[in-house]
Amino acid sequence: PQECLLLEPGLNEIMANSLDYNERLWAWESWRSEVGKQLRPLYEEYVVLKNEMARANHYEDYGDYWRGDYEVNGVDGYDYSRGQLIEDVEHTFEEIKPLYEHLHAYVRAKLMNAYPSYISPIGCLPAHLLGDMWGRFWTNLYSLTVPFGQKPNIDVTDAMVDQAWDAQRIFKEAEKFFVSVGLPNMTQGFWENSMLTDPGNVQKAVCHPTAWDLGKGDFRILMCTKVTMDDFLTAHHEMGHIQYDMAYAAQPFLLRNGANEGFHEAVGEIMSLSAATPKHLKSIGLLSPDFQEDNETEINFLLKQALTIVGTLPFTYMLEKWRWMVFKGEIPKDQWMKKWWEMKREIVGVVEPVPHDETYCDPASLFHVSNDYSFIRYYTRTLYQFQFQEALCQAAKHEGPLHKCDISNSTEAGQKLFNMLRLGKSEPWTLALENVVGAKNMNVRPLLNYFEPLFTWLKDQNKNSFVGWSTDWSPYADQSIKVRISLKSALGDKAYEWNDNEMYLFRSSVAY
């Protein structure tokens, strides 16, 4: 590609939709070469300064400071330590791993069909083939991996386009969902002041979706909304933040926050679980009234959910574990990228498509890292959202599997949720969690119950496949010279610098 592309739109479109291996590689590498390399010296300084700040406030390091958001002291029976968070994340991840490994094996087999000769049947997945710029969410792999393609499509993007949905309609439908469970409408100022579409040439905007509580009843969302099912669900997520903000607005200023950061992320995700169900999509006209649910549509639905929800958990866990180790000084600065990709291979089963030396800073190419967000919130929120969903479905008197529950129109479920939201940070999160779900610790069981039918199906699908991955295989081993030459021509001086062995191999191949 010759034109100058922004991340959004532009590069993200390539990473969402392109099936051209080399075009995807160009976009993936260009973003890291342009952005990651510029941020490397800044990120090194950032780590030093943030650690100084944390230690001045009596924390061991900046990662310890972040984990302090979960700490509860002096509340008998509800205490929770920063170290306990690490333990809980690690042991819940071990419980999730078998499901993830089977999802990984299934996706690898489907990617082998889409990119023959580029995928190893026992290796890691190349990082640039996973549906977005970071491989964070695998949602866009659904069209390549759908188990029963002859069934009606449960990705309702086409239906939204056919019905001329726009950003306003998407957010109005999200608002209807919250109102149906007894939560309030958005304010008039929300509709007047939010930026729900890309302003285009009028001004440059950071398009990463964010929710804003500017105080004095001024709530806004910034999002360059596209007419897709993914953005339909994202709208519910962002509006969930606003509902939380509005619910605790009466609290004293210092207590106007989520019980912990994971709670804030979980609220909209609960609504997304219901909004994505075929039952709900039928009720708002995005699935045909004669759409029939059966075992095959159930597996299609659960796989689509797993690509988004299960596929991202190792990504989140590994990223934050790397940062915690960096802040603690356990990874020397001259080994940041080496350790990043070692951990990516070992924990996530994902491999870099071309080698990256220590001039890169791949983590900082992600919005949340370069903008100083702690990231473990996206792991804890996933466990909380299924715990909350299970409890709210019980309040809504849902009968049947958890993945079929739609809590819309249940004011009982809405009241149970609101009673927790309005507390803000005035009560320990362990107590707030217990008030809703009857337990005071994160628990992976509801998530595993939700995906149980899919897990059973995946194990059957993978019975003749290798489950797990070898960390030795690299996608650039066989194609390295071709890849390096093409990237050198595209990126010039910003391309990865060849070492002596690679230059010798190149000259030998040319001479041959």
Rank of each mutant, 00 (worst) to 15 (best):
R136Y: 11
R136M: 13
R136L: 09
F137T: 07
F137C: 10
F137V: 09
F137P: 11
T139R: 08
T139A: 10
T139E: 09
T139V: 10
T139Q: 09
T139Y: 06
T139G: 11
T139D: 13
N140Y: 12
N140D: 11
N140R: 13
N153H: 07
N153M: 10
N153E: 11
N153T: 12
N153A: 10
N153F: 07
N153L: 10
N153K: 12
T187H: 05
T187G: 05
T187I: 08
T187Y: 04
Q188G: 12
Q188F: 09
Q188V: 11
Q188W: 03
Q188A: 08
Q188D: 05
Q188T: 13
Q188N: 06
G189C: 00
G189D: 00
G189F: 00
G189T: 02
G189H: 00
G189A: 02
G189P: 01
E192I: 06
E192C: 07
E192Q: 10
N193C: 01
N193K: 04
N193P: 03
N193T: 07
N193M: 07
N193R: 02
N193Y: 15
V206N: 08
H208D: 09
H208Q: 11
H208V: 12
H208L: 07
P209G: 06
P209M: 02
P209Y: 04
T210M: 10
T210Y: 07
T210H: 02
T210D: 10
T210P: 03
T210F: 06
T210E: 06
T210L: 06
T210N: 09
T210I: 05
W212N: 01
W212R: 04
W212F: 04
W212D: 02
D213T: 03
D213H: 04
D213L: 03
D213R: 04
D213Y: 05
D213E: 11
D213I: 03
D213K: 09
L214P: 06
L214W: 01
L214A: 07
L214F: 15
G215T: 14
G215C: 13
G215D: 05
G215P: 01
G215M: 14
G215F: 14
K216E: 03
K216Y: 02
K216I: 00
K216L: 01
K216H: 00
K216T: 02
G217F: 01
G217E: 01
D218N: 04
D218G: 00
D218Q: 00
D218I: 00
F219Y: 06
F219I: 01
R220G: 01
R220H: 02
M229Q: 08
M229E: 05
M229H: 08
M229V: 09
M229N: 02
D230N: 13
D230Q: 10
D230I: 09
D230V: 12
D230M: 07
D230R: 10
L233W: 08
L233I: 07
L233Q: 13
T234D: 07
T234Q: 09
T234C: 11
T234N: 07
H237E: 13
H237R: 11
H237C: 12
H237D: 12
H241D: 13
H241M: 09
H241L: 14
H241C: 14
D245V: 14
D245A: 12
D245S: 13
D245M: 09
D245I: 15
M246D: 03
M246R: 06
M246Y: 03
A249W: 02
A249H: 01
A249G: 06
A249Q: 02
A249C: 05
A249P: 02
A250S: 12
A250H: 14
A250C: 14
A250M: 09
A250E: 12
Q251V: 06
Q251N: 07
Q251L: 04
Q251H: 11
P252Y: 03
P252K: 04
F253H: 01
F253Q: 03
F253D: 01
F253L: 05
F253A: 04
F253E: 01
F253P: 03
R256M: 14
R256T: 08
N257G: 09
N257Q: 09
N257H: 13
N257M: 11
E261V: 06
E261T: 08
E261R: 10
H264W: 07
H264R: 09
H264M: 05
H264P: 09
H264E: 12
H264Q: 07
H264K: 05
E265M: 10
E265R: 06
E265Y: 06
E269K: 11
E269N: 09
E269A: 14
E269Q: 14
E269H: 08
E269P: 11
E269G: 13
E269S: 14
S272T: 12
S272I: 09
S272P: 07
S272L: 10
S272Q: 10
S272N: 12
F301G: 09
F301E: 11
F301D: 05
F301Y: 12
K304A: 12
K304C: 10
K304F: 12
Q305C: 07
Q305H: 09
Q305T: 09
T308D: 10
T308K: 11
T308L: 08
T308M: 13
T308E: 09
T308P: 09
T308H: 13
T308A: 10
I309L: 09
I309K: 08
I309W: 09
F367E: 09
F367W: 12
F367C: 06
F367N: 11
H368G: 10
H368K: 10
H368Q: 12
H368M: 08
H368A: 12
H368T: 07
D372I: 03
D372E: 09
D372K: 07
D372Y: 04
D372C: 03
D372H: 10
Y373K: 11
Y373I: 11
Y373E: 09
Y373S: 08
Y373Q: 09
Y373A: 12
S374F: 10
S374I: 09
S374A: 10
S374Q: 13
S374M: 09
F375A: 11
F375R: 06
F375M: 12
F375I: 10
F375H: 05
F375D: 10
R377M: 08
R377A: 10
R377L: 09
R377G: 08
R377K: 13
Y378G: 06
Y378R: 09
Y378E: 08
Y378H: 10
Y378P: 10
R381A: 13
R381N: 08
R381L: 06
R381G: 15
